[in-house]
Simulated scan of single mutants.
Amino acid sequence: MVKYEEFVRANERAEELSSRVPRAITARYDRRLRRVVVQLSSNLGIFFSPADAEGLEQASPEQLDDIEISPSGYGLHFPKIDADLYLPSLLEGVFGSERWMASRMGMKGGLSTSPAKGNAARENGKKGGRPRKSEA
């Protein structure tokens, strides 16, 4: 059971959030741009690629066509794939859980190229290359 003080604090946090973070007014998937487009209460809008958001990476355009906005205006729900995104996090550039974001950063780092990385790979090759994995 929620205590009255917790209820009051939760309402205060919600009021503070609504005073500084815009809410979603409309949300749709634009097939031409291949982006989710969100119109905000601040008269600004954001758009992002589903490939960059946890839970939407493999979604088809048909699965992205239906987007529900939570009553608070801070949640986006994709019912056809049961995925949810939190608008304040999206506005801060967070498109998934901490673990998911870290894996995406690691993947991008591994795909990056630079002269230093190329030189290191060549030096490693002179030493026989990457050590073979030992049998467990």
Rank of each mutant, 00 (worst) to 15 (best):
M1Q: 05
V2F: 07
V2R: 04
K3G: 08
K3L: 13
Y4T: 12
Y4R: 09
E5Y: 14
E6C: 07
F7D: 08
F7C: 10
F7R: 12
V8I: 15
V8R: 09
V8A: 05
R9D: 13
R9H: 13
A10I: 11
N11K: 13
N11G: 08
E12Q: 13
R13H: 08
A14I: 07
A14Q: 15
E16D: 11
E16V: 11
L17D: 07
L17H: 02
S19E: 15
P22M: 03
R23N: 01
A24P: 06
I25H: 04
R28H: 12
Y29L: 08
D30F: 12
R31N: 13
R32N: 12
L33Q: 10
L33T: 10
L33D: 08
R34V: 14
R34K: 14
V37L: 07
V38D: 04
V38Y: 07
L40K: 12
L40S: 06
S41C: 01
S41Q: 03
S42A: 15
N43Q: 14
L44R: 11
L44M: 09
G45Q: 10
F47E: 00
F47A: 00
F47N: 14
S49D: 07
S49G: 00
D52S: 13
A53E: 00
A53D: 00
A53N: 04
E54I: 10
E54W: 08
E54D: 01
E57N: 06
E57H: 05
Q58F: 12
Q58S: 12
Q58E: 15
A59L: 01
A59M: 07
S60T: 15
P61Y: 11
D66I: 14
I67G: 01
E68I: 12
I69H: 01
S70L: 01
P71N: 07
P71D: 14
P71T: 05
S72V: 04
G73A: 02
G73I: 00
Y74A: 00
L76Y: 05
L76K: 02
H77A: 08
F78T: 06
F78R: 04
F78N: 03
P79V: 10
K80A: 14
K80N: 12
K80E: 10
I81T: 07
D82L: 05
D82P: 00
A83R: 11
S89W: 02
L91P: 02
L91K: 01
L91R: 01
E92N: 14
G93C: 11
G93D: 09
V94L: 05
V94H: 05
V94W: 02
G96W: 04
S97F: 09
E98C: 07
E98W: 05
A102F: 10
A102S: 09
S103P: 00
R104V: 03
R104I: 04
M105D: 03
G106I: 10
M107W: 14
M107Q: 11
M107H: 10
G109T: 03
G109E: 07
L111W: 10
T113R: 10
S114Q: 06
S114N: 05
P115A: 12
P115V: 15
K117H: 06
K117R: 15
G118Q: 14
G118C: 02
N119F: 10
N119Q: 13
